[in-house]
Amino acid sequence: MSGALSGGGPVVVGYRDETSGAALQWGAAEAGRRGVPLRVIHAYCPDPISPLAWGVPLPIDDARDFGAMMRANARSILEDALERVRTRWPELPLSSALVSVSPSASLVESSRHAGLVVVGRAAERSMAHGSTALTVAAHSQAPLVMVPAVAGEHVSPVAPDDDHRQLGAGKVVVGVDGSPECAGALECAFVQAAARRVPLLVVHATWWRPVSGQDPVTLAFDVSGGERGRQDFLGLGHWMARYPDVKLSCALARLPVGDALVEISRGAELLVVGTRGHGGFSDLLLGSVSRDVLVHATCPVAVVRRVPSAGLEDLDVESPAREQLTVS
Rank of each mutant, 00 (worst) to 15 (best):
P199L: 12
P103T: 00
P199M: 12
V307R: 08
S104A: 14
L24R: 00
A310S: 09
F221Y: 13
R209N: 12
G287L: 15
T132S: 00
S104D: 12
S96N: 01
A22M: 02
E318I: 15
H129G: 15
A29G: 06
V317S: 04
R84H: 02
R64C: 00
S249C: 01
A253P: 06
A81V: 11
Q141G: 14
V101H: 07
G280Q: 14
V158N: 02
N73C: 00
A138E: 02
V307L: 07
P10K: 00
P180N: 04
A193V: 04
K247Q: 13
H278N: 10
G152I: 02
K247M: 09
R39W: 01
E181W: 13
S131R: 13
A159E: 14
W89L: 13
M127H: 03
G178Q: 12
K171V: 10
A105C: 04
D177F: 10
L234P: 04
G21E: 15
V272D: 07
L5H: 00
R291T: 10
T132Y: 00
E30H: 07
V217F: 10
A142W: 06
A97R: 08
V158E: 07
A74V: 04
E109F: 00
D163F: 08
Y44L: 00
G226A: 11
P48N: 13
H238K: 11
V173E: 10
E323Y: 11
S140I: 00
L325H: 03
L94Q: 04
A43P: 04
P10H: 00
D80S: 08
A310V: 02
P103W: 00
T132I: 09
V304C: 10
G267P: 07
Q25A: 13
A105D: 08
V145K: 01
H139G: 09
G235W: 07
C182D: 13
M240F: 08
R84N: 02
A31K: 01
P320K: 06
P157L: 09
R196E: 03
D314C: 05
E18H: 02
S76R: 09
A310K: 04
L82C: 14
P157W: 05
